[in-house]
Design a protein around this nucleic acid. Structure first.
Length: 1053
RNA sequence: GCUGAAGUGGUGGAAUUGGUAGACACGUUGGACUUAAAAUCCAAUGUCCAUUAGGACGUACGGGUUCAAGUCCCGUCUUCAGUACCA
């Protein structure tokens, strides 16, 4: 009886589904364990072999934990809002909800066939209104909260309002916007409601702010950095500008310190924690204020402004100030210029008439560069002088104010004090523009480069800081700055507030409407606010987001419902004072990370009880947080940081009782694709010049005509390699062009030549070889291309139909006379590279258990690795051998034979190794261990049930279907998932002797079997007396003999 | 650029604390079985030298520490990921 994996797998998948084998319970005597995968985005391309890698690992762990007696929660769902569905909708007009539903069905079928132990009854989908209702609710809670730095947590906005009305805002220690005006309690109480709203918005944890975006005028939309290639949009190649836009932001910066501290409490890899630490980017230093020296021109402008709005009092002598943050206040006397980001608001106010043209040209040029470009490019130095000067706070010397795109507007204050002797970028800038580089380091040569180190140097040429080291000078500089009111010690974080608005359709709508431009939240009981229908998914002609196309997208506060825009107050008559209570709704939607920042809590609740809350208190208390989270490291600073932020916020407001969402986190490495390439020979027709006037034109016409009938030629990998283009052309001409396949072309030329003598000079040659991706499905394990398949491909078959293929041996392929080999290269697995391998064919051909084992066998979970199916026969062969260990032609072979010492040794060594491997997430080595064990049992002719039964339990997390089947055949009625993990016993592994490696000067020469309990002295005596030792030493006396009992012997000399 | 990883046979990888480098597989070669193929089984397989015995070299590159280095230290190179609106 042989191993019929397809039948077995279908049978057990049905059994698990019918019996709800993996349904988690919220009440149990067992300890809980929550294993979670990062949920997938259901893309149109379907699941590829990279997705299941992490899922298989977490599934092994979940199944292992069940064997170990835990109540395991192992759910799955879909991150189903996202850009690709929207792109597809724009192209095809299909509603994203429809394509998403189809994609989810495909994913589910593909996931089911791999045999995961998911509790599907708890599935979530972020695009489901019953789910995003709670995403909207959390957004409202953020809006209704402020961050109190005194209690170091978020509080209800009500506590802030009551403080305002009793004491004003002077003593409020909040994390809020910078432009706060001080008011008293009386003033607060007398402000109009609109002023109240305006002020509160500066304190809320989500607030409206002007932020810079990549605006693409041609597409009428905002682009992500990775949608921009070389400064133009990836789609269509349109220009992209930096532009300011009012958007929702999240005050994640309030949590910077707690996000940093929290890292010490969780079990994540050091590299991942380091990424987050760097992202948060805490730096301790000082903020310093520089006054701008006034010119008469500026004074006039300031006076003009003052008459326009007299509310704000400015210091008469220095209306313009530049605030900078520096980690090196000790180098304050090394400042020789200031640099502002080109977008800095002061730039337009201080630029002199002389410099105006240059500055404006520079700003325009900068607006075209992406932020990433500006950060990455340190080689080209650019900038412009504003013509204005700042004043050094101590020396009062004038410091020229420049703008330079190496300073980023969104980073810190968007301005730096430039200390060229201490910072390389400042140094390069100063050198480039001939700005002075004062040296403030004692005995340091700065003629070649800046001195960036803080240690082992004393400050010089710095007045009161002379002779001090970094630490002392920093302290003193801050003190002196405070004395003159131009600075203070400050801790800065690189972490910026997160922009939360997207100008997209396929995302959560905001539960927000606007009255006189002020945002208003919709009450919880009216949620969810569902996505409206639109006729197309593009921005409007006016550049509004796609929701601007919805005809019914206004909020009627009388009936609390979405109504037609025609009824809207502002639409009726802008001048009308007759407010009908119907207002426009927010047109932006939420970003991808909104729904994924809290989904792990939703799984905790049974689907049946999800109506009243995002999850019940009991469920939250029982499951607490995720014990093991597996996903890609590319989420290090996105999803994994935002989730931590939301969880901390929810904890502050009492909605959950954990501080961190994910206790332990493992990153799975990406599975890369092995792309396949064919080499297309580009044939060109050229002329050798003309003989008579007027020939050129004629020749061009002929060239065009001949070019159009040239065949496509593809050469095999071997032929394409290692030849220069000239050599290649020679080879090619000799072999093919003048021979047969281009015969038709040559005949045509001959014909034309007869009629026209000017054609004598026309010539065909191979001008280039292009590498083109082909679908990997047409390539076998030996890199040979299936030409028939390729030519019949539905998508690209036509391109290859009439092409000529030249094989490895240089033969034109007619049938089996030669083979075409493709070139191979490892790249990211992606649809556009045609290297996507999906698991369906593998499940079909080898089975899910083989796929699971193979994905684990590929290598360490956390490492990126290329996918290559060539090795899958190895693990499949193992499963077949394993089957034979239990079953032969007469049925079950397993009996009650007494296990031998060897049997027990193999079993227990396997238990030990597999258990250690699972605990260390080293799944690849377990697979080898199973193979070794199975080979040993086969060699031992083991049939003992006492051995083979526990061995199945060890295997079942990895290959659950075959394990269930054999377990069942051994006479069990219950699923193997209920079995207890076998217990390791040391006593079966005790060895009496050791095969010692005998090394000479560290090189192993031979081995020697010696008893384990032999003393050091006896080992030395035995080894030294050995004939091979004597031969090795060849009469020399060893200087030293090193013996590590149980390990090695090393003879030196 | 910055930040974080990785680099071992023809290929994927193993070597858990510094102690026999290449486990386990794939591939390749040879053999058995078969009319033949598939499947299965057996043997060899890091490179170079040598008939054998055996020897030399070998974990990206260049140094160092040590009786002993894939593993620790310093420097260099290459590849991959993230870099704030892809998910």
């Amino acid at each position: 009886m042989s191993y019929h994996f397809n039948e077995i797998e279908a049978k057990w998948q049905k059994y698990w589904a019918d019996n709800k084998t993996f349904k988690a319970s919220n009440t149990s005597d067992k300890p809980k364990y929550y294993v979670l995968d990062m949920f997938p985005y259901p893309s149109g391309a379907g699941l590829h072999v990279g997705h299941p890698l992490g899922y298989i690992a977490s599934d092994i762990y979940a199944r292992y934990k069940r064997h170990k007696g835990f109540n395991v929660l192992h759910p799955q769902g879909y991150d189903s809002f996202g850009l690709p569905a929207e792109q597809y909708a724009i192209q095809t007009g299909q509603h994203p909800a429809v394509t998403t539903e189809t994609n989810i069905k495909t994913y589910r079928r593909q996931l089911d066939q791999i045999g995961f132990s998911f509790d599907w009854s708890r599935e979530v989908r972020t695009s489901n209104p019953e789910y995003y209702k709670w995403t909207q609710w959390i957004f409202i809670q953020l809006f209704e909260s402020w961050y109190n730095n005194d209690t170091n947590q978020a509080e209800s906005i009500d506590t802030l309002i009551s403080k305002f009305s009793s004491e004003g805002n002077a003593n409020i220690n909040a994390d809020c916007d910078d432009d706060i005006t001080i008011f008293s309690s009386e003033e607060w109480n007398n402000f109009a409601s609109e002023a109240h709203q305006n002020i509160l918005l500066k304190y809320r944890l989500t607030y409206l702010a002007e932020t810079e975006v990549n605006w693409c005028p041609a597409l009428g939309t905002v682009l992500a950095n990775d949608e921009i290639v070389n400064g133009v949009s990836e789609r269509g190649g349109h220009p992209v500008m930096r532009k300011k836009m009012t958007q929702w932001s999240m005050r994640i910066s309030a949590y910077a310190e707690r996000l940093l501290q929290g890292l010490d409490t969780i079990d994540w890899t050091d590299s991942l924690k380091e990424s987050q630490r760097n992202w948060i980017g805490k730096s301790v230093g000082a903020s310093v204020t520089f006054n701008v020296k006034m010119t008469s021109e500026m004074l006039k402008q300031v006076q003009h402004d003052e008459t326009q709005r007299h509310s704000e009092l400015v210091s008469e002598s220095h209306p313009h100030k530049i605030e900078v943050f520096t980690t090196r206040p000790d180098t304050i006397f090394g400042v020789s210029f200031m640099t502002l980001a080109p977008e800095h608001e002061l730039v337009s106010k201080i630029t002199t008439a002389d410099q105006k043209a240059e500055v404006e040209a520079y700003i325009t040029a900068t607006a075209k560069r992406s932020e990433r470009d500006r950060m990455a490019d340190v080689k080209t130095i650019s900038g412009a002088f504003t013509g204005a000067y700042a004043e050094h706070p101590f020396t009062k010397e004038p410091l020229p104010i420049w703008i330079g795109d190496y300073v980023l507007a969104g980073y810190g204050t968007g301005a730096v004090m430039s200390v060229p002797c201490g910072d390389q970028r400042d140094y390069d800038f100063a050198t480039h523009f001939n700005i002075s580089i004062p040296n403030i380091f004692e005995g340091v040569d700065i003629s070649e480069e800046a001195y960036g180190a803080k240690d082992n140097v004393k400050i010089a040429n710095s007045d009161f800081l002379n002779g001090m080291n970094y630490k002392k000078a920093t302290k003193r500089a801050i003190y002196e700055l405070e004395q003159i009111g131009q600075g203070e010690g400050k801790t800065n974080y690189r972490l910026r507030d997160a922009v939360f608005s997207r100008q997209r359709y396929w995302g959560e709508p905001f539960p927000v409407y606007y009255v006189n431009g002020m945002p208003q939240m919709i009450d919880k009981e009216h949620l969810p606010i569902r996505l409206p229908e639109v006729e197309k998914y593009l921005p409007t002609e006016e550049g509004e987001p796609p929701l601007g196309r919805a005809t019914h997208w206004s909020w009627d506060t009388n009936i609390n419902s979405v109504v037609s825009n025609e009824l809207c107050h502002s639409a009726l008559d802008a001048e009308s004072t007759n407010d009908n209570g119907i207002y426009p709704l927010e047109l932006n939607t939420m970003p991808g990370w909104a729904g994924s920042s809290w989904y792990f809590f939703r799984y905790m609740e049974d689907a049946a009880n999800r109506g009243e809350a995002f999850a019940s208190e009991d469920a939250l208390n029982y499951w607490e947080n995720v014990d093991l989270y597996i996903g890609g490291s590319e989420h290090a600073t996105g999803h994994l940081l935002y989730s931590r932020f939301w969880v901390k916020f929810m904890k502050d407001r009492g909605f959950v009782n954990v501080d961190e969402p994910f206790k332990k986190l493992i990153n799975q490495g990406m599975i890369l694709g092995t792309s396949a390439f064919v080499y297309r020979v580009k044939l060109s027709v050229s002329s050798l010049g003309s003989y008579q006037p007027g020939d050129n034109e004629k020749q061009e016409k002929y060239i065009e005509e001949i070019s159009s009938i040239l065949p496509s030629i593809y050469v095999s990998e071997n032929i394409s390699k290692g030849k220069s283009l000239i050599e290649f052309d020679e080879f090619f001409k000799e072999k093919y062009i003048n021979e047969y396949k281009t015969k038709e072309v040559l005949e045509k030329i001959e014909l034309l030549k007869k009629n026209d003598s000017s054609l004598l000079g026309i010539n065909i040659h191979a001008s280039n070889i292009n590498k083109l991706h082909v679908k990997v499905q047409y390539v076998n394990a030996s890199d040979e291309l299936d030409l028939e398949g390729l030519k019949n491909d539905g998508e690209f078959g036509e391109d290859f139909k009439d092409a000529i293929f030249i094989g490895e041996n240089g033969e034109i392929i007619e049938s089996d006379n030669d083979v075409y080999k493709v070139g191979r290269e490892v790249e990211k697995m992606s649809k556009s590279k045609y290297n996507v391998v999906n698991p369906d064919a593998i499940c079909e051909q080898y089975g899910a258990d083989s796929l699971r084992l193979y994905e684990m066998f590929l290598g360490p979970l956390e490492q990126a690795k290329p996918w290559n199916t060539a090795g899958i026969t190895g693990v499949h062969g193992f499963l077949k051998k394993l089957w034979k260990l239990y079953v032969d032609d007469n049925g079950l072979k397993v009996n009650d034979a007494e296990p031998t010492a060897d049997n027990l040794k193999t079993l227990h060594k396997t238990i030990k190794k597999v258990e250690e491997d699972i605990e260390n997430f080293s799944f690849n080595t377990s697979v080898s261990t199973f193979m070794i064990a199975s080979n040993e049992f086969t060699a031992q002719k083991c049939t003992s049930k006492a051995i083979l039964e526990p061995f199945l339990v060890l295997l079942s997390p990895y290959a659950p279907h075959i394990a269930e089947e054999l377990w069942n055949r051994l006479g069990h009625d219950e699923s193997i998932s209920t079995a207890t993990f076998p217990k390791f016993e040391e006593k079966y592994l005790v060895e009496s002797s050791k095969n010692y490696p005998i090394s000479f000067n560290g090189k192993m020469r031979f081995t020697l079997e010696l008893p384990m309990d032999m003393s050091k002295e006896d080992i030395e005596k035995t080894v030294m007396a050995h004939e091979k030792t004597i031969a090795q030493l060849d009469g020399r006396t060893p200087k030293k003999v090193i013996i590590v009992p149980g390990k090695i012997v090393n003879i030196v000399g």
